[in-house]
């Protein structure tokens, strides 16, 4: 079975150490490391937004960085992505942010999008906050919106960079539950790959594979 995500000797961080990791399907995987470790750039590498100077990052067996531009954009819609800070568009409401991928990249009608949006907002605990702009919402609502937006196309794989910054362990747990999308394939229904500087202790038991990058070396996170 093709792994949903694999890094093959990509240079990482200031040390430019070769980083290799194969992510198990239907598992929650975390890679933590300090800011200089470069773990924050792994999701962007996987999605072909930055090109590795050596090695390869493969998503569903495909080297996204080597694809033609048009194909890259279509491919990225198969993967959920939450960048550091959430990346919500400030001039759109939380609901419009969540709906944006569907409005821009799906063939669904207005009515279908509206129905799906209502369901997604309710699922993400945003039913009463959809009209707020990101600047008017608190950190928890913003995090929820960025996670729900990443799930717009119900992707098999979700990549997140520092998704739990600024939220309580309880909210982080809720978000992780939402990301898992139920159970399937002997674990989480989705494959979830999280990079961060650290993960809340309360979440650790719910993470299937924990890794830490120390001075460029990948080691199991105890």
């Amino acid at each position: 079975m093709t792994p949903p995500l694999a890094f093959d000797a990509v240079p990482l961080g200031a040390a430019d150490a070769a980083f290799s990791l194969t992510v198990t399907p239907h598992a929650v995987t975390t890679v933590v490391g300090d800011a200089a470790s470069g773990v924050g750039g792994l999701a962007a590498l996987a999605l072909g937004m930055t090109r590795p100077t050596a090695g390869r990052a493969l998503v569903f067996g495909e080297d996204v960085a080597a694809m033609p531009r048009r194909q890259v954009l279509a491919f990225r819609r198969r993967v959920g992505y939450v960048p550091a800070g959430g990346g919500l568009l400030q001039n759109l409401s939380l609901a419009d942010n969540v709906a944006l991928p569907l409005r821009f990249g799906s063939a669904l009608s207005h009515r279908e999008i509206a129905g799906r949006l209502r369901m997604m907002l309710a699922l993400g605990g945003l039913a009463d906050a959809g009209a707020l702009r990101p600047a008017a919402a608190d950190e928890e609502l913003r995090r929820r919106a960025s996670v729900v937006r990443a799930l717009a196309f119900d992707p098999e794989l979700v990549l997140l960079d520092r998704p739990f910054d600024g939220v309580s362990a309880r909210v982080a747990g809720d978000l992780l539950q939402l990301l898992r999308g139920g159970e399937g394939g002997g674990g989480s229904r989705r494959t979830i790959f999280i990079t961060a500087q650290d993960v809340p202790d309360r979440l650790r038991p719910r993470i299937d594979a924990r890794w830490r990058v120390v001075r460029g070396v990948l080691q199991a996170d105890q």
């Binding site: 962007a44 999605l47 954009l73 960048p83 990346g87 944006l100 990249g105």
Partner: peptide, 25 residues
């Protein structure tokens, strides 16, 4: 100003990640 703010706030990066070309949007 608007596009520079979009860039600085990571919104352009997020659009790319969603498969939306910033040139289009």
């Amino acid at each position: 100003t608007e596009l520079a703010t979009n860039t600085v706030m990571g919104e352009v990066h997020a659009l790319e990640g969603m498969g939306i070309d910033p040139l289009h949007y």
